[in-house]
């Protein structure tokens, strides 16, 4: 039975990732992307890692969603954008992701109410993750922060407006 749920989730992941790649519209891809990370969370849950599953939902489904919404908000301004928004989201588009998500939900409910909680290996909770991260992997955490800093500085530099470069420079010189 576990094999069945595992394969069902895998199929959902693969389908939605495929749709992410082949959708012509970025917003549609985004819907499927969120779905794929939700399905990934179900996989983690089945493997006995509820903490990782929760993180997957919060960080990927949650944070990526927010990020994309911000980007859409920043890119599109004005009335024309509202019109464009309508074409981005025609009524029928939610059906595909909704169907897959419903499948996932049914599967999750099935897993939760299954009497003997499926033959889990060892469940890994937040405490173990924390102890490992701040024990042997302490340096990895520090290095990851430097990685983020490098990415931030690089993104800041490349994302600076391209126009009026010399104007920026003289402005900086004067101030």
């Amino acid at each position: 039975m576990e094999m069945f749920t595992f394969y069902l989730t895998s199929i959902i992941i693969l389908t939605s990732i495929l749709m992410v790649v082949i959708s012509a519209n970025a917003v549609h891809s985004l819907l499927y992307l969120i779905l794929s990370s939700l399905a990934m969370a179900v996989i983690f849950f089945q493997m006995g890692a509820p903490f990782a599953a929760a993180l997957e939902v919060i960080v990927y489904a949650g944070a990526i969603m927010v990020l994309f919404v911000f980007v859409v908000m920043m890119l599109n301004l004005g009335q024309a954008a509202v019109e464009e928004e309508r074409t981005l989201m025609p009524l029928g588009i939610w059906r595909g992701p909704a169907l897959l998500a419903a499948l996932l939900l049914a599967e999750l409910a099935f897993l939760l109410f299954q009497q003997p909680v499926a033959s889990l290996p060892v469940a890994v909770y937040a405490k173990q993750v924390g102890i490992t991260l701040f024990g042997p992997y302490l340096l990895a955490v520090e290095l990851a922060s430097i990685l983020l800093m490098a990415g931030l500085v690089g993104a800041y530099h490349l994302g600076r407006p391209l126009l009026k470069k010399s104007a920026t420079r003289t402005h900086v010189r004067e101030s």
């Binding site: 290095l143 990685l147 490098a150 990415g151 500085v153 690089g154 993104a155 530099h157």
Partner: peptide
């Protein structure tokens, strides 16, 4: 860290 710095 090396690669991300190099992209920029």
């Amino acid at each position: 860290i090396l690669s991300v710095s190099l992209f920029a």
